[in-house]
């Protein structure tokens, strides 16, 4: 059980590191926010799933699941708000033609 939990957490941390690398490497706000959305999809899902397995069945597992559901509902909202604000402020996304 502990091995499975640690494996899941390490797997999630790998995606968090990839997201950090992506945030540094990618060129503009739109593509960077794609990299950030890696953290809330596989990164957070794996880390929180690992934590809930480590806790075992009980009230703490339910609490972690509540956090996970809220994260999956709210993180896209934040990403969308950031990107829409950038778009409305006149930031033009780099497309294939101007590279």
């Amino acid at each position: 059980m502990v091995i499975l939990a640690v494996g899941l957490i390490l797997f999630g941390v790998f995606f968090l590191v990839v997201a950090a690398i992506g945030t540094l490497r990618l060129p503009d706000v739109f593509t960077r926010s794609h990299a950030v959305s890696l953290t809330d999809s596989l990164g957070a899902i794996c880390v929180l799933a690992g934590l809930s397995i480590y806790q075992g069945f009980g009230i703490n597992m339910l609490k972690i699941l509540v956090v996970l559901v809220l994260l999956l509902l709210l993180n896209p909202v934040i990403a969308h708000a950031t990107v829409r604000a950038a778009y409305r402020a006149g930031v033009k996304p780099q497309t294939e033609e101007d590279q």
Partner: peptide
């Protein structure tokens, strides 16, 4: 809109 943004690689602008 939420599913599109949740999927990495696509974001609803």
């Amino acid at each position: 809109g939420n599913s599109v943004t949740l999927t990495p690689g696509t974001i609803t602008v």
